[in-house]
């Protein structure tokens, strides 16, 4: 079955065909069903039901009803007249996540990254470190200038911003290389499955 579906998906490389469409539809359907079951058991049963009706000896935790009610409010959008209730749990999720991430961003992506970018532009006796530090500092500086939206990118300022985009493109190139590696890895895994696990040709 695994080999049949793998080959079906790979057949898309030749062109769109009924075999691929069948595999695609099966994948979409099964994954929707899988996620429904996962969410039901890991969230509704594990987080709500088991806390309200716990096994013997465990205390009931009614605080989880708050989440249950918010979940119900989300479902109310099925009723058009009171559908606006669904915005409340949505607001809850957006607000809660923003609050939780705020400190994390400021700490992990703000302070610690700025601190690591403040580097000496000359490291005595170490040319590698010197060049590395200069590239890091200049790249960060120009990149930040590119993402400054309060000023038109003209003249010298525009040239600095352009240098920023060059740095970004080099970064993207490196990133692209890594992705080629990732995609090749996935293909290697599938080929190993087809020729090794399925056909038994690879030891």
């Amino acid at each position: 079955m695994g080999a049949f579906l793998t080959l079906g998906i790979i057949s898309f490389l030749y062109k769109d065909n009924p075999w691929y469409k069948f595999c695609e539809a099966l994948f979409v359907g099964i994954s929707a069903g899988y996620w429904f079951c996962t969410v039901f058991w890991s969230q509704f049963v594990a987080k709500l039901w088991d806390n309200i009706y716990p096994t013997a000896g465990q205390p009931r935790q009614y605080v989880y009803l708050v989440g249950g009610i918010l979940g119900l409010m989300m479902l109310l959008r099925l009723v058009p007249k009171i559908g606006w209730f669904s915005r409340w749990p949505l607001a809850f999720v957006v607000g809660g996540t923003a609050g939780a991430y705020l400190i994390g961003y400021a700490l992990s992506n703000g302070m610690k990254q700025v601190k690591s970018t403040i580097l000496p532009l000359w490291v005595s006796g170490n040319l590698n470190a010197t060049v590395g530090n200069i590239i890091l500092v200049v790249g960060t500086f120009c990149g930040l200038i590119y993402f400054f939206f309060s000023k038109e990118q003209k003249g010298t300022y525009g040239k600095v911003a352009k240098l920023g985009i060059f740095f970004l493109m080099i970064t993207f190139g490196a990133s692209f290389g890594y992705t080629v590696m990732a995609r090749m890895s996935l293909l290697i895994g599938r080929m190993d499955f087809l020729f090794g696990t399925w056909l038994g040709l690879i030891k």
Binding site: A100, Y101, I103, G104, Y105, L107, S108, K112, Y178, T179, M181, A182, S185
Partner: peptide
């Protein structure tokens, strides 16, 4: 990194897809 390492001080290491 954000929620365990920087917040609670535990050491973090990663194994990532190339992407």
């Amino acid at each position: 990194v954000i929620f365990a390492g920087d917040r609670f001080g535990v050491k973090i290491a990663g194994g990532n897809t190339a992407v």
